[in-house]
Amino acid sequence: MFKGLGGFGDMAKMMKAAQEMQGKMEEMQARFDTMTATGESGAGLVKATATLKGELTALDIDPSIFQPDEKEVVEDLILAAIRDAQSRAAEKMQAEMSRMGEQFGLPPGMKLPF
């Protein structure tokens, strides 16, 4: 199709590859809304689940920690579980992005999106 146009044929291939990558990135971003990571604190007494985008979707609290005089401890455990879930979600998202970059032949460690 681009025969005789010199570097324009390569440019067309690059543009097509960029469009493919953009489509895959959009698919991946949509999957990040449904993929989750669960964090916990207090040896599993409090568990928080978040999407890979960091949105909290569930909180599970063992009833044994509901002591009126332990209010601050419970609050700290909840916050720690949420932070853990968000951290795990970010790590999982980065791993997914790295995996996708490898599929496109990008050098290891190159962060997506650019």
Score class of each variant (00 low, 15 high):
2 F>S: 13
2 F>V: 06
2 F>E: 10
4 G>M: 06
4 G>F: 03
5 L>D: 07
5 L>T: 09
6 G>T: 10
7 G>P: 09
9 G>F: 03
9 G>I: 09
11 M>I: 03
12 A>R: 12
12 A>L: 14
12 A>W: 12
13 K>Q: 12
14 M>C: 04
14 M>K: 15
15 M>S: 13
15 M>N: 10
15 M>V: 14
15 M>W: 12
15 M>H: 14
16 K>Y: 09
17 A>H: 12
18 A>H: 11
18 A>M: 12
19 Q>R: 14
19 Q>T: 12
20 E>N: 10
20 E>I: 04
23 G>C: 01
24 K>H: 15
26 E>M: 14
28 M>T: 12
29 Q>Y: 13
30 A>P: 04
32 F>G: 01
33 D>L: 08
34 T>P: 00
34 T>I: 10
35 M>E: 09
35 M>K: 03
37 A>L: 02
39 G>R: 08
39 G>K: 06
42 G>E: 03
42 G>Q: 07
43 A>T: 12
43 A>H: 09
43 A>Q: 09
44 G>Q: 08
46 V>Y: 01
46 V>C: 02
46 V>I: 08
47 K>T: 06
48 A>P: 01
48 A>G: 01
49 T>H: 01
49 T>R: 05
51 T>I: 05
51 T>A: 03
51 T>F: 06
52 L>R: 00
53 K>W: 04
53 K>H: 10
54 G>C: 02
54 G>D: 01
55 E>I: 04
55 E>N: 09
56 L>W: 07
56 L>M: 12
58 A>R: 10
61 I>P: 00
61 I>H: 08
62 D>C: 03
62 D>N: 11
63 P>A: 06
64 S>K: 15
65 I>S: 02
65 I>L: 08
66 F>C: 03
67 Q>C: 02
68 P>K: 03
71 K>N: 10
71 K>P: 00
71 K>E: 14
71 K>G: 02
72 E>N: 09
73 V>Q: 13
73 V>R: 14
74 V>Y: 02
74 V>T: 09
74 V>M: 13
77 L>H: 01
77 L>G: 01
78 I>S: 04
78 I>G: 06
80 A>C: 12
80 A>I: 10
80 A>T: 13
82 I>G: 03
82 I>W: 08
82 I>Q: 15
82 I>T: 13
82 I>F: 07
83 R>S: 10
83 R>T: 07
83 R>P: 04
84 D>Q: 05
84 D>F: 06
84 D>M: 05
87 S>V: 04
89 A>L: 02
90 A>I: 00
90 A>K: 00
91 E>V: 03
91 E>S: 13
92 K>Q: 15
93 M>L: 09
93 M>D: 04
93 M>H: 05
94 Q>S: 13
94 Q>L: 13
94 Q>D: 14
95 A>P: 07
96 E>K: 06
96 E>T: 11
96 E>S: 13
97 M>N: 05
99 R>C: 12
100 M>S: 08
101 G>T: 02
101 G>N: 06
101 G>M: 04
102 E>L: 11
102 E>M: 11
102 E>D: 13
103 Q>Y: 08
104 F>W: 05
104 F>Y: 12
105 G>L: 10
105 G>K: 05
105 G>P: 07
106 L>P: 04
107 P>Q: 14
107 P>K: 15
109 G>H: 04
109 G>L: 05
110 M>G: 07
110 M>V: 15
111 K>H: 10
111 K>N: 13
112 L>E: 12
113 P>C: 14
114 F>A: 15
114 F>P: 15
